[in-house]
């Protein structure tokens, strides 16, 4: 055993570790994450037209029970209770920002579509998610205001309807029916439904369990 060279190695490792410790102590480390990637790239993803789904597209997802879609309503629980989008879950915006988004967005095979009254909160939630690296996030363009005026209050005027218009109109009617059925439920049933849709914190796998 070469004691001298052992000592030198130990001194080197100790010096390295102590320096690393001093550097880390001076860094503004927090337990939270920061956005990842280049700002220009994140911005272009946020502004990309493909990040926005129209209310008609969302209506089709609802009517066809598309399992690759998750609707996330970021309004307050009171607003959500008043007007509940079918097949949606409610994560108020302040809860979404305050918690680790991984528990809501960790399934990369699912498209998460944010919904709010207009585009504001939903776009903020989408921008926040994309910044943290969740590319599978989208916005329902126009929010519930657009949904109400286009889907719920949809009417057809004119003498002739093309096949395409007919299909669109049918989807809107069916989606509106689902919406109205959901919102005509008594409060107690609605609350039960909302409870069943609540996210529970997904535990990380690991440890000795």
């Amino acid at each position: 055993m070469n004691f001298k060279s052992d000592m030198k190695t130990r001194e080197k490792i100790s010096a390295l570790l102590l320096s690393a410790g001093i550097i880390l102590a001076l860094l503004p480390l927090t337990g939270n994450r920061s956005f990842s990637g280049k700002p220009e790239k994140v911005l272009s993803e946020i502004l990309n037209a493909e990040t926005f789904f129209s209310v008609d597209q969302v209506a089709r997802f609802i009517v066809t029970e598309d399992s690759t879609i998750q609707l996330i309503d970021v309004r307050s629980p009171e607003a959500y209770r008043k007007n509940t989008m079918p097949r949606s879950v409610n994560i108020p915006y302040n809860d979404f920002i305050g918690n680790d988004p991984d528990k809501y967005l960790n399934n990369r095979n699912i498209k998460n579509i944010f919904i709010s009254d207009d585009d504001y909160d939903s776009s903020l939630a989408m921008a926040y998610s994309k910044g943290l690296g969740y590319s599978n996030c989208y916005v329902m363009k126009g929010g519930l205001k657009e949904w109400t005026s286009t889907v719920i209050e949809s009417t057809f005027t004119g003498e002739r309807i093309s096949a395409r218009e007919n299909a669109l109109f049918e989807t809107r009617i069916r989606a509106a029916r689902l919406f109205n059925e959901m919102n005509s439920l008594p409060d107690s049933l609605k609350l039960k439904f909302m409870e069943s849709k609540k996210f529970s914190a997904k535990k990380l796998d690991g440890g000795c369990e």
Binding site: A20, G31, D102, C208
Partner: peptide, 27 residues
């Protein structure tokens, strides 16, 4: 030594954006 190398290394890598420490299981 292994513990403090892992601790210091993972925190430096996390600061440089190369790993996400929020994914580490905390018992």
């Amino acid at each position: 030594t292994a513990a403090i190398v892992a601790l210091a290394g993972s925190q430096l890598l996390s600061y440089l954006g190369l790993i996400n420490l929020n994914q580490v299981f905390v018992n």
